[in-house]
Design a protein around this nucleic acid. Sequence first.
DNA 1: AATATTATTGAACAAAGTGTTCAGTATTAA
DNA 2: TTAATACTGAACACTTTGTTCAATAATATT
Lengths: 181, 181
Amino acid sequence: MDRRQRKTRELIFNAFILLLSKKHYNAITVGEIIELANVGRATFYSHFETKDFLLKELCIELFSHLFNAENDGDNDGIFNCDIHGNVFLHLFKHVKENDNNIRKLLTSKNNELFVEYFKGEVTKLFKERLLDFIDKKPASIPQEFWLNHITSTFIETLRWWIETKMKQTPEVIYNYFLELI
Amino acid sequence: MDRRQRKTRELIFNAFILLLSKKHYNAITVGEIIELANVGRATFYSHFETKDFLLKELCIELFSHLFNAENDGDNDGIFNCDIHGNVFLHLFKHVKENDNNIRKLLTSKNNELFVEYFKGEVTKLFKERLLDFIDKKPASIPQEFWLNHITSTFIETLRWWIETKMKQTPEVIYNYFLELI
DNA sequence: AATATTATTGAACAAAGTGTTCAGTATTAA
DNA sequence: TTAATACTGAACACTTTGTTCAATAATATT
């Protein structure tokens, strides 16, 4: 990819992230983004079809290393942690220590699109590790319902934790989560 | 209130509800609403400041009888049910039998505003009846967190039920809910 | 270093939506 | 019947969106 393209992409991403932490997703206009990024209008539209696509590509940029990491070395993908699957504890830690972006996006308003993306990824994680939680499932309820429940509970827990300023350690909040389910 | 006002209010509400079941909240324009309602543009704006206010007033219109009913007779407010507080079972029943509007609104896209309203009302209900559920709370977790959790779980359960076409009876889905918490 | 390719620019553009205004008309309440 | 009030519809300024295009700049290719 042309160096110019990489440059403008990054300028746009940075401007967008900055705006996301200042105002609702719906309230952000393409005009504001390009003004802050110092980029022509036509340039923006040659990179991204719409604002929604910008968000989508930003998610891939920011989180694909987390969710899609193969076991190929020294990245910090979710799958490369303490052998036996404290994936979710790892995620709490990751959010606390590195990932201000997840914090911003998960608590920003009018951002159904991101929540949908994030929930989709987390659902995949739980699906792959469903057996680790299957013993907690009451026998009577359907598995699809259970999957939806633990995923939602995880995300709500994470959101609550972020919104109340992350006063607990990742370990404590992870135990809260385990006690809920 | 002038009969003319009541008439246009109802025309607008009906048009809005119809549109909500056909497209995303964000995609609905004032132009469409007034065209469908057969009402002048100026009239719309003399009734409602913005589309968001329209939604807000629609919620009050549709659900205040549910959530704010005092014990004053033959309404079907949430508080006027089987003495000992199966409020939530009652809500499941209500949604299944009478309330196509909650169904539409709770599963419509780009409708954070409604979900926020609905969650607020349900949170109030749980807060007033927290003692009924307090014995299910693990000792270690904070009460505010617990309140948020059972509220979210209730709403997610309701949403899942609606989205999967309400195949279970209200009693069964209510038991699912109880087993989750 | 010269050239071909590709990205960016800025300005202009149509289209769609928002929210306001106002004079004229119709409906309702008194 | 009259006075008050609600509705109309058309026009308005304004904002935002997404597109187009010729000129210019940066990069890749040889």
